[in-house]
Design a binder for these strands. Sequence first.
DNA 1: AAAGATTGAGTTGTCAATCTTA
DNA 2: TAAGATTGACAACTCAATCTTT
Lengths: 163, 163
Amino acid sequence: LYGTTDSSKSGAAFPDDDLRRLLQQLVRTGGLLEPGHQSHDHDGLRASPSEVFALGELLEAGTLSQQELGARLGLEKSTVSRLAAGLEQRGWLTREREADDRRLFRLGLTDEGQHVAQRIGDHLRGHHTQLLNQLTPAERAGLTLGLTGLVRALKTHHDRAEA
Amino acid sequence: LYGTTDSSKSGAAFPDDDLRRLLQQLVRTGGLLEPGHQSHDHDGLRASPSEVFALGELLEAGTLSQQELGARLGLEKSTVSRLAAGLEQRGWLTREREADDRRLFRLGLTDEGQHVAQRIGDHLRGHHTQLLNQLTPAERAGLTLGLTGLVRALKTHHDRAEA
DNA sequence: AAAGATTGAGTTGTCAATCTTA
DNA sequence: TAAGATTGACAACTCAATCTTT
């Protein structure tokens, strides 16, 4: 995309064309989170990718406010609001007003929610492991190194835009 | 996500936890295509990420059917239908029924569409180059190697699911 | 039938405006 | 005022059903 054609016009010569192409392919194939599907079955349990992530974050953190969850997920507070409402309705999540500061909701997993999070987490782990096992050790090492740098670059870019 | 907690339960020990965490961060921060924004301004031109990609594909390919464009973009034919309609309305794209087989639309860029594609392409290239310049050479090399492998793995996974 | 494109319904997200508590 | 959460309007998808040409 925007790769081979007319590199003369931009004048500068972009040496990392290959890398850019790869990123685009990656984003498009998407498959990192089992793609295309906007929702997702594990053992008969249905959850959207964001719901899956949310359960994972809560399993890891114990309890979170909606804001905190939103920050971890990279989602708007409004999205988190509806997300949490949905999970609550399915009985996977509890929302209790904080005693100290009643503006906050404290989100936590129910017993069933923990069970679900655990099952889905295992499923995802397995899927990812299977994918990564198809890479050579050198590819895995390179990916780790490269993505670390890329995340750092994106983060500074993002932070700069906020200020 | 699903990383530190309770690795005992799955029994197998997942050695590539770091890599999985990185991928998740990447997907969430998203910023590869200038994130968060669901639409996107360049030089006063407004286009969604998919529209940007579509223009790029057409610039590269010359003409495409909607199916072909959808395949390259990883989008449903229905999405492509509305996408193409929108670009046509803005005067950036032409849709002509194929003479040989009138089921197909042959999509092509108008002169203005080519101009826009060129400008946006330059902008994107610049953005990506700027990002990648923040990486060390080793990180760039690793990223290229690792993503090549990952794209391959995702592709085989995807192909297997189709069959 | 089968293949390309379209249309309608539902999901997941954003952004902007509002409500509520501090 | 401002911070957390909610609501309403809209965008960009997917999926399933349909229309049109082969």
